[in-house]
Design a protein around this nucleic acid. Sequence first.
DNA 1: TTCTAAATGATAATGATTTTCATTGACATT
DNA 2: AATGTCAATGAAAATCATTATCATTTAGAA
Lengths: 163, 163
Amino acid sequence: MTRLVKGQQNKEVLIEREPIDIESFKKMIRQMGLKVTKQRVHILEAMSSGRAHITAQELFEKLNKNHPEIGFATVYRFLKNMTEHSLVTEVRMGGFPARYELTPNQHHDHLNCTQCGKIVEFENESIEELQLAVAKKFNFKLTGHVLELYGQCDQCNSKGSDT
Amino acid sequence: MTRLVKGQQNKEVLIEREPIDIESFKKMIRQMGLKVTKQRVHILEAMSSGRAHITAQELFEKLNKNHPEIGFATVYRFLKNMTEHSLVTEVRMGGFPARYELTPNQHHDHLNCTQCGKIVEFENESIEELQLAVAKKFNFKLTGHVLELYGQCDQCNSKGSDT
DNA sequence: TTCTAAATGATAATGATTTTCATTGACATT
DNA sequence: AATGTCAATGAAAATCATTATCATTTAGAA
Ligand SMILES: [Mn+2]
Ligand SMILES: [Mn+2]
Ligand SMILES: [Zn+2]
Ligand SMILES: [Zn+2]
């Protein structure tokens, strides 16, 4: 069933990203060995503007306004394609629906406010190195990691507690 | 619906845990402000032997052998209770079903083999400190974190690649 | 032992994501 | 530009993990 929900408008603190034009989008799609369809281009356009970390559902709703002909199966399918090709990064916070972002050049991890949903991207080379050291210690070949920090942002802290 | 699946029997490298007796289990349940029922004690018994990181489904199947009267709603419910009281820790690996473990005294994170499912528990004080530093830098009050490392264990590496 | 709220288990419901399948469309080739 | 073919699409159903409902049972206080 298709459910339309008002998504909350949360702030993000992002690392720098370079803007991408439509031609680049088409190039990306071809690089994946897929056909260039208007829905795929629209999905990439939608992902490159607005909230960087978006759920499949939110993305579908956003697209739905200007392109009601795009089905959410297509959104899910293409997100999966792009994730497999590392053009999109899937971010999972606890048991919540996955959020997706166009993979930026610079690797980063996330700091999340559990109160208001604010997402801060950060990069810490020392942590990355220590992770490698841990893997090495246990004779693992490290292929990936998930580092998510949870807490309260300063706004939420100052605004008192609860609810 | 109740589905019975053969769970794979994967190895784990665990930090030390002290054994817990039935009386302690009952104490734990009372501490949560809950009634001591045989199903709850059985669930705790099942969790304290065998694979430390177990899914709700696996736990249900394990219990089902000797205690077919326990419903899986009870398993889920009690796992949730215990998670809320921090007696159990929920571990989420990617989009897979959550795994649960009796919370040990020592905090730790996980190193997972994506090939065979081996789980290694580790603890790295430096990483913990750096996480605090990151949170501080962005004026967050850190309340929790998820750190999961993914890779191939040495056995899987030596056994060649693929499938 | 009695009483009552909490706990249980069978089952239905939910929410996210995936699959199915009939139809459409991209694009390589005439 | 017209054709053919296989990938892509969208609507809908299916799946999977998890949670809620509700009639019945039971722990444990009185
Ligand atoms: Mn990000
Ligand atoms: Mn563990
Ligand atoms: Zn906040
Ligand atoms: Zn392995």
